[in-house]
């Protein structure tokens, strides 16, 4: 179906183009004034000013520590397996390697690398992690001067990830277990 747009012939005044000129002047002046005199440009001066993204934003994935400052990752390599662009590379400790620095875990990775140039920020690693050790955090602009620099290692990832206080899997598991024990009695 065609829609016919009615084109009214211009009035004599409109044909002088003066009303258009006046409205154009008005609009441009309004914006000029807003930017120059009120100092409110619509743009942001990027590297110095950045958007503050909301909580839960899916930015770069980083490793997190638990509330005692221990590594949560247990080197299960599920994230490495699920990662669609194969950005994650984990070096497990091996049978004779390092043991975990926390309770409720047997081992931790010897090396954990995420290639941020490959990462597509899909969040599968966060979803698949049984230990809640990796989270997509709020960093959205990662820059570097070389490809090597863009491969983040374990130390860097842990430092950037920080402590994820809100989610404490083993504490909750303990509470859940306690609840299970006294379940029928306590609820009634």
């Amino acid at each position: 179906m065609t829609k016919v747009v009615e084109r009214k012939p211009l009035s004599a005044l409109e044909r002088t183009y003066l009303p258009t000129l006046a409205s154009g002047l008005k609009v441009t002046w309004k914006h000029f004034k807003k930017t120059v005199f009120e100092g409110k440009p619509a743009t942001m001066e990027y590297p110095e000013e950045r958007w503050v993204v909301p909580e839960g934003y899916r930015g770069a994935p980083y490793l997190v520590k638990d509330q005692e400052g221990h590594t949560k990752c247990v080197s299960c390599q599920l994230c490495e397996f699920v990662c669609p662009p194969k950005a994650i590379k984990i070096t497990p400790p091996g049978p004779e390697g390092q043991v975990a620095d926390r309770t409720n875990a047997e081992k931790m990775p010897q090396e954990f690398e995420i290639n941020m140039l490959r990462c597509i920020f899909c969040g599968f690693c966060q979803e698949v992690c049984p230990e809640e050790a990796i989270f997509l955090q709020r960093d959205y602009s990662l820059t570097g001067e070389s490809r090597e620099e863009m491969i983040y290692n374990k130390e860097k990832l842990l430092k950037l990830g920080g402590v994820h206080g809100g989610i404490q899997k083993w504490k909750h598991k303990l509470e859940e277990a306690k609840e299970q024990e006294e379940f029928p009695v306590a609820k009634i």
Binding site: F32, A42, E45
Partner: peptide
């Protein structure tokens, strides 16, 4: 600069 200001931008700085 003037174009930038009219378009709510900052211009070369």
């Amino acid at each position: 600069k003037v174009s930038a200001w009219i378009q709510d931008r900052v211009g070369p700085n």
